[in-house]
Design a binder for these strands. Structure first.
Lengths: 176, 176
DNA sequence: CTCGTTTTGTTTGACAACCTAAGTAGCGCT
DNA sequence: AGCGCTACTTAGGTTGTCAAACAAAACGAG
C-alpha cells in the first residue's frame, strides 16, 4: 500500500540484517556449547570436510579470509584440545595437513552448523514451489552481493559426511 | 527436475552461507578502510541512528549481543578516536549517552553499510514484482531462523539520517 | 648442479575483542 | 533510611588478528 520503493529496499535490508545477526549470535552460542570459539569451530568444520587428507593452513586462511598467522594460532589451540593433528605432507614437505581427529569429528557433530539446526527443518517443511522460490531469491541476493567466488560449501559438509556421501568429488570447488 | 528435496535444502544453505561470508568479509574491508575495526564501526552505526540523544551502553550491548564491559572498551577507543563522546543523562544519572561527533558521522558516511554499498543499487534496479518477492523470501528466511526479535534497523540509519527522515519515531523498536 | 626467487608455514610482538567477576554510583520502593 | 536492582566501569585473563621477520622446501634459470 503506497509503499515507496525505498521502503522496500529498507525492508529487504532489515530482513537481511536480521538473518545475519541471528546466525552470528547463534553461531556464538553453538560454538560455546561445543567448548570452542566460533573461529575454532569454523576451522573444525572446514577440516571435517576432508577427514582423510586434511586441509592445509593456506587453504584455511583463504577460505576464512584471515592470514596464515591467525590460522597457525587457531590450529595450535585445536591441537591442544585434541581436535586436530598436524600431518606433514609427503608430496610437498613445506605443506602441513591439518587433519581432524575422532574427538574433533564428534565435536563437530555435536555442534551442527548454526544454520542447519534452526533452518533446515523449517525449510523442508515448505511446499515444493516455495522452496524453489526461496532458493532462487537467495541465490539472487548472493549474486547481488558479488558472493559468487566465495566457497561456501564446507560448513554444509557435516551432514553429508555423516551420510557417507562423497559429493565433494562430484562438486569441485571454485578455486583450483 | 530429478532434484532431490535435500539438494534444494543444500542449495539454499549454500546461498545463505555465501551471503553471510560475503557480508562478513566485506564488513572487515570496509571498517579497515575507515580506520576502524568492525565492532567499532558497528557501534558507530548504531550511535549514528540517534545523533541527538545518543545511545546508552546498555542498549548497545543488547543490540550487539556482547556484555557491557565490552561496550565500555569499544566506546573508550571510539572516544579516543574522537568519534563519539560520553554525555551523562539528565533524567537518570546512572545512564550515559554515547553521542556521535561530527567526525564520527563523517566516518560513518565514508564507510557505508556493508550491505548497502554492494546491494542497494542492484536491488533498486530490479523490477517491482521482483523486489516484492525478494522481500517476502528474505522475511520468510528470517522467520525460519527465529530472527524476529532481533533489532535490525540501526545499520540502515545512515541513509535516513542523511535524508533528514525521522522514521525512527514512526517505527518504534521491538523491545520496550 | 647451484643460485636466486617464490611458496608455505611458523614465530614474535602488539592490539583489539571479549568474558567473568568485582567494584561504584544512582534509582525506587517500602 | 535502608535494601535491592540497574547502569556503568575496572581489573585480569584468554582469544583473534595482523604485520614483520624468519626458516625450510620447491622451482626455475643458468
Amino acid at each position: 500500500m503506497t509503499q515507496a520503493p525505498q521502503d522496500r529496499t529498507n525492508d529487504s535490508l532489515i530482513a537481511l540484517r536480521r538473518i545475519l545477526r541471528a546466525t552470528e549470535i547463534y553461531e556464538r552460542k553453538l560454538a560455546h556449547a561445543a567448548g570452542l570459539s566460533p573461529p575454532q569451530l569454523r576451522v573444525l568444520q572446514i577440516v571435517a570436510e576432508k577427514p582423510d587428507i586434511g586441509t592445509t593452513p593456506k587453504t584455511l586462511s583463504v577460505q576464512m579470509g584471515v592470514t596464515q598467522a591467525t590460522v597457525t594460532a587457531l590450529v595450535d589451540r585445536l591441537v591442544r584440545h585434541g581436535m586436530v593433528t598436524r600431518v606433514p605432507s609427503q608430496t610437498d614437505r613445506r605443506q602441513i595437513n591439518v587433519v581432524i581427529t575422532t574427538t574433533g569429528l564428534a565435536a563437530v557433530e555435536r555442534a551442527p552448523d548454526a544454520l542447519q539446526s534452526q533452518y533446515v527443518a523449517a525449510f523442508e517443511a515448505l511446499e515444493d514451489w516455495e522452496q524453489a522460490q526461496l532458493v532462487s531469491s537467495l541465490e539472487r541476493v548472493a549474486a547481488m552481493l558479488k558472493a559468487g567466488d566465495i566457497d561456501a560449501s564446507p560448513v554444509l559438509a557435516v551432514r553429508d559426511i555423516r551420510a557417507g556421501n562423497q559429493w565433494v568429488d562430484t562438486k569441485p570447488r571454485g578455486k583450483t
